[in-house]
Amino acid sequence: MARNLLFWVGIVLLVGACLFPILWMLNLSLKPNELAQAVPPAFFFEPTFEHYPTAWRSANLGPLLLNSVIVAVGSTILVLLVSVPAAYSFARYETSRGHLLFMILSTRMMPAAAIVVPYYLIFRQFGLLNTHMGVILAHAFFNFSFCTFVLYGFFKEIDPNIEYSAMIDGYSRPQIFRKIIFPLLKPPIAVVTSFSLMFSWNEFLFAFVLTRTDASRTVTAGIEQFWTMTGIQWGPMSAAALIAIAPMLVFSIYLQKYIVRGLTFGAVKR
């Protein structure tokens, strides 16, 4: 009983710690401007919804959200197109005996801030600044390694004899991939899809540096504009931030069951 109590206290503290920033943001977004910086913080106030329409209009959130969708979906499709066959080849044919796999992983070994300036220069050279494609490529680059590595682990879990078995049963490799392998890969593909989408949606630095205009800026980078010369507009910024995280929140709740299944895939010997 006491153990149980301790467990629940622990859970509540942990969940509270995780949710606090979001709840605080919600609180800020509903607070009148004059109370935003009050010390001690005001917990009880007349809520106001004026920040939401202000944020939507002044930050041009509609187009920014659309940009985010284009970039996140675009980079995720690109990642899947490359990572699934790449991981398959690493797992089945031991392509390059692991050297290439390691090299791919090594792209994640430096801090993003270290390479953002060369990226800027290169992308400028290729005319990719202020374009969707520029941000898509940058995000895809970061996700390739992670997704390939995760998928590699899942492919390794699938017994190659299953494929041989299907060949003996009279199927060709593309048919086997479609009928046998792909259905088995649904959970891991759900995992990498959601990770890739979330990364791209949340990524700030590259989206910020590679875009100067609202034509291709993502919503995450767009929130920066509430940081004005005359001060930070806490209320509208919080409102915009909440609008920005809402789609990902809904999306991850929807994908939750696949993700949990994917994360525990292969953890138990079947």
Partner: peptide
């Protein structure tokens, strides 16, 4: 797939 043989694997290899 063109040999028309049937095989049962020791570790089953079921789908």
């Amino acid at each position: 797939q063109d040999r028309n043989v049937a095989m049962a694997f020791e570790n089953y290899s079921l789908y």
